[in-house]
């Protein structure tokens, strides 16, 4: 990164038109800033209609969970939120996704720019194998043209500290990313996403490939992270959703069945399908 004033002079490409949305019918007025919302979002694989007109809000500084049985379209929906869905051949999406008030499916919007603001963490920990731990964290910045060594060092340290990995790896930053354990690799991937300073991080079942102890660490981490970044997490683990999320959306065969505060959804669901799912009667 140039350190001589090239920071200034440019405003971010997104202005803040943050709307205020309330969830009516939920007792006390849950009210927060909407950072991301989908409006009538549809998605297909070929002719297979996997997400059907889903409209959802995600709030700033919260963890939002999306639950549902496998094949319900929850991962596809998540991947539509930063235009990752369209990277699969034959896949397409239609509808509106507003990020800070701007539609990311706007024809002038570049998927790459969208993903710089809305990061992603995947089901399998996927550090880049040819890179060291340090390189893995800063690769996004490097690609973006940040060159100054001390900037990269500072950011790498900050992000690794944020995911609680710093003490474990500070003496072997040049070791390959793949030399870490599965849980550490996933935290490394979260650090890699954080380094881009995204407003939102999408997580696609980030703990499903991990052991229970690593899972618990990641869950603690997410609750900690929401102070600085909004998190949307897809999970098939209902206890996980109940433990860490503020809002929960329940998807079934591509339809949004119910959306609300996590406490409400799990204690007092309005739809019978939701109740049957969370009590383990199907899925």
């Amino acid at each position: 990164m140039e350190h001589n004033g090239s920071y200034s002079g440019h405003n971010g490409s997104y202005s803040s038109h943050n709307g205020h949305v309330s969830l009516v019918g939920h007792g006390d007025n849950f009210e927060s800033q909407t950072i991301l919302e989908s409006k009538d979002l549809d998605a297909w694989f070929g002719s297979h209609h996997v997400v059907k007109s889903v409209s959802l809000h995600f709030f700033s500084r919260t963890v939002s969970a999306i639950i549902g049985p496998s094949g319900c379209g929850k991962s596809t929906f998540l991947r539509c939120l930063n235009r990752m869905h369209e990277e699969i051949p034959g896949a397409r999406a239609k509808g509106v996704v507003n990020f800070q008030g701007k539609n990311i499916y706007d024809m002038f919007s570049e998927p790459a720019n969208v993903r710089r603001h809305i990061g992603m963490v995947f089901q399998k920990p996927n550090p880049f194998p040819a890179m060291s731990i340090f390189e893995n964290v800063i690769i996004g910045l490097k690609l973006a043209g940040v060159k100054k060594g001390y900037v990269l060092n500072d950011i790498a340290e900050a992000c690794l500290k944020q995911v609680g990995l710093w003490d474990e790896v500070k003496d072997k930053l040049s070791a390959p990313g793949l030399s870490l354990s599965g849980g550490q690799q996933q935290r490394l991937c979260i650090a890699r996403a954080l380094a881009m300073a995204p407003e939102v991080i999408l997580m696609d079942e980030p703990t499903s490939a991990l052991d229970p102890i690593s899972t618990a660490r990641i869950e603690e981490l997410l609750v900690e992270l929401k102070k600085t970044v909004s998190i949307v997490i897809v999970t098939h683990n209902m206890q996980q959703a109940a433990r860490i999320s503020d809002t929960t959306a329940f998807l079934l065969s591509g339809d949004l069945v119910e959306f609300g505060r996590t406490g409400e959804i799990f204690t007092n669901p309005r739809k019978s399908e939701t109740e049957r799912y969370i009590t383990g009667r199907f899925g």
Partner: peptide
């Protein structure tokens, strides 16, 4: 090369 590797890079906003 697994698809998730490409997605990891794209997810960082790379071209």
């Amino acid at each position: 090369v697994p698809q998730h590797q490409r997605e990891a890079a794209l997810g960082l906003g790379s071209t």
